[in-house]
Simulated scan of single mutants.
Amino acid sequence: MLDISRLYVSYGESQVIRDISFTVRAHESVAIMGRNGMGKTTLLKSMIGLLPVHAGEIRLDGRAISGLPSYRRVQHGLAYVPQGRMVFPFLTVEQNILSGAEHSGHREVPDYIYRFFPVLKDMKHRNAGNLSGGQQQMLAIARALISDPKVLILDEPTEGIQPSIIKEIAQTLNVLRQERGFAVVVSEQVLSFALDLADRFLVIDRGCIVHEELRANLDQEKVKTFLTV
């Protein structure tokens, strides 16, 4: 479904992503684990088109999308929830969600979004800046989902969120991806969240994939060595 092949990404003369290749299958959830500064965010930004790729290829359903701008990648089926959520604080919850609907044609918030995130329905007329961190994360996910993605990309979704809400978000995403038929790529440092959500784990270190394992066979202690400073 989503194929990343021999990807290289640089900031100026500093090469951050080096020769990364992996595939995400339909409905699969893949966690990209690693410490800060190892290239997780850079990789995800290059996938959605916020950073240019210097070499390699990104294909979605067999179509090369590496040279497309971000909005065209959204049209083809990618959706992105950035680190820090980046909601519009002075727009209402409903306006925030609908701001992601440009390429899907939705003029109203679909019922399934409010069914999975009932707190957003209760607060739909409240400004997003007045929500808690966990509620803003739900809002950012809802805004991405309204584009009807094939692949949902999440960057550090647990940052600044209390543990009970983290578990709730993982459970909701699992049900959503089965019901709505999308895949997930998530960058994360919280192993417990990734274990609740991911089918497969990739560990990135200094811009390279250094370990890959299915959840069923995961050596948690080995992964933890890549997450500790």
Rank of each mutant, 00 (worst) to 15 (best):
D148W: 07
Y71L: 11
L51D: 09
I20F: 03
N127S: 12
Q75W: 11
Y112E: 12
K45L: 10
N130D: 13
S147H: 00
D148P: 05
M33H: 05
Q136E: 11
R107T: 13
P82W: 00
V119P: 07
H106S: 08
E108F: 08
R59N: 11
M123L: 15
S99T: 15
K121M: 11
D122Q: 15
S66Y: 10
Q135D: 02
A79R: 09
S46G: 11
L139V: 00
V74H: 06
G39Q: 06
L78Y: 06
G67F: 02
M38V: 11
L60G: 04
A64M: 13
I113S: 06
Q135T: 04
T42Q: 07
H106A: 01
H54L: 14
S147N: 13
P89N: 00
A128M: 05
G77I: 04
F116P: 01
G134M: 00
Q75T: 12
S132V: 12
G129V: 01
L51I: 15
G105L: 07
K40S: 04
T42V: 03
F90E: 14
L44Q: 07
L98Q: 07
Q135C: 00
I32P: 01
H106V: 02
T42M: 09
R143Q: 10
P89W: 06
M33R: 06
A140F: 00
V119G: 02
L120Y: 01
I48Q: 00
S132C: 11
D148I: 06
L68G: 00
L60S: 07
S66L: 05
E94Y: 03
E28M: 13
E28D: 14
R72L: 12
P149I: 01
L139N: 01
L91V: 08
R25S: 15
Y114A: 02
K40F: 02
G67I: 08
S29N: 09
E57Y: 05
A128K: 06
L131P: 03
A26H: 15
S132I: 10
R143V: 00
E108M: 13
L91C: 09
P118M: 11
F116E: 05
N96C: 08
R35Q: 12
S147C: 12
P110F: 03
L91M: 15
L131K: 05
A144I: 01
S132E: 14
N96D: 08
Y71F: 15
